[in-house]
C-alpha cells in the first residue's frame, strides 16, 4: 500500500509517497492557475508509475486541498507540517514554514501540534514578498541569498509588500548596490518571521517550505532567534510527507 500526500500551496504543489515508513518518491510542480489541473497531473504522473487508487491512499493539504477530487481525506497544512516535521526531525521544537502566501509557526511536542501561529492577510514575511522583490531586482532566490551575504547593512522599513517594493525602487534609483538591497530584503523577511515566531518560542527550530535549502536564510534565522535552526532538503516536502503519513491513519 502506498501513502500519497499532496500539498497544493499557493505557488508550488508538493507530492510525497510513503511505503513502509520510507519516503520513496517526491515531486515538485508549479501550482499555476488551476489547483484542479495540477491535481490531475499529479494523479496521472503517479499512475504512470503504477500508483493508483487501487494500491494507494491519498491525503490532500494546502490551499488547494479541496481541489483534489480523488483525495481520501483532507487535512490542513498546519497539522501536516507538524506531522511531516516530526517525521523528519523527530524532536520537540517549533516548525517555521515560510510559504508562498503565509508563514506559520508550529509548536511540536512528541509529534503533536501544541500551538500554532499564522500571519494574517498581509504578505510581509512570506515567500510572496521575496517573489516580488527578486522579480524587481532581476534575481533568482539563490542569487538573492548569495548577493545578500556580501551586502552592507541597510534596512527596508515598509512592512507592506507593495510599499516595500516602492522603497526598493527608490533604492535602485539612488544607485544603492544590489547586494545591499538584497541584504535588506532578506532581513525584512527574517524580522517579520521572528516577530511572528516569538509567539511560539522553542529552544530548537525546524525550517520547512521553499526556503529550506537556503543556508543564508537559515543562518540569519539562527542569529535572530539565538537558537539552532535545522533543515534538510526533504523539508520542502514536510507538508506532503505529513499528509502521506496521515493517509495511513483513519
Amino acid at each position: 500500500m502506498y501513502q500519497v500526500g499532496i500539498d497544493i500551496g499557493s505557488s508550488a504543489a508538493k507530492v510525497a509517497v510513503i511505503k513502509d515508513d520510507e519516503v520513496v518518491k517526491t515531486m515538485l510542480l508549479d501550482t499555476g492557475f488551476s489547483s484542479r489541473k495540477v491535481a490531475d497531473e499529479i494523479y496521472a504522473a503517479l499512475a504512470s508509475e503504477g500508483i493508483t487508487k487501487d494500491n494507494a491512499k491519498y491525503v490532500a493539504t494546502g490551499y488547494g486541498r479541496v481541489s483534489v477530487p480523488y483525495a481520501d481525506n483532507v487535512v490542513t497544512e498546519i497539522t501536516c507540517h507538524g506531522k511531516g516535521a516530526d517525521y523528519l526531525f523527530k524532536e520537540n521544537g517549533t516548525v517555521i514554514d515560510i510559504g508562498g502566501q503565509d508563514t506559520k509557526g508550529i509548536s511540536l511536542k512528541k509529534g503533536r501540534v501544541m500551538k500554532f501561529i499564522m500571519n494574517d492577510k498581509c504578505s510581509a514575511g512570506t515567500g510572496k514578498f521575496l517573489e516580488v522583490m527578486t522579480g524587481r531586482l532581476g534575481l533568482t532566490l539563490e542569487e538573492l541569498s548569495d548577493l545578500a551575504r556580501e551586502g552592507n547593512e541597510i534596512s527596508i522599513s515598509s512592512m507592506c509588500t507593495v510599499f516595500a517594493e516602492s522603497e526598493v525602487i527608490s533604492l535602485i534609483g539612488k544607485g544603492t548596490p544590489r547586494a545591499d538591497i538584497a541584504f535588506g530584503v532578506i532581513e525584512s523577511v527574517i524580522n517579520k518571521v521572528v516577530a511572528l515566531i516569538a509567539q511560539v518560542p522553542a529552544d530548537k527550530y525546524f525550517l520547512t517550505g521553499g526556503l529550506c535549502e537556503d543556508d543564508y536564510v537559515r543562518e540569519r534565522l539562527e542569529l535572530a532567534l539565538n537558537a539552532p535552526v535545522k533543515s534538510t532538503p526533504l523539508a520542502r516536502y514536510a507538508g506532503a510527507i505529513g499528509a502521506a503519513i496521515l493517509a495511513a491513519e483513519k
Binding site: 490542513t76 497539522t79 500551538k115 500554532f116 499564522m118 494574517d120
Partner: peptide, 27 residues
C-alpha cells in the same frame, strides 16, 4: 487551547480563516 482570530466583515481572508480554524479544530 486558545486561538485569536483578527478579522473583519469582508471575505478577503476567508481562506486563511478557514485554514486556521480547521487546523485549530484538528489540534
Amino acid at each position: 487551547p486558545y486561538m485569536k482570530l483578527e478579522t473583519d466583515y469582508s471575505t478577503t481572508d476567508s481562506g486563511q480563516i478557514e485554514t486556521r480554524l480547521a487546523a485549530f479544530l484538528e489540534m
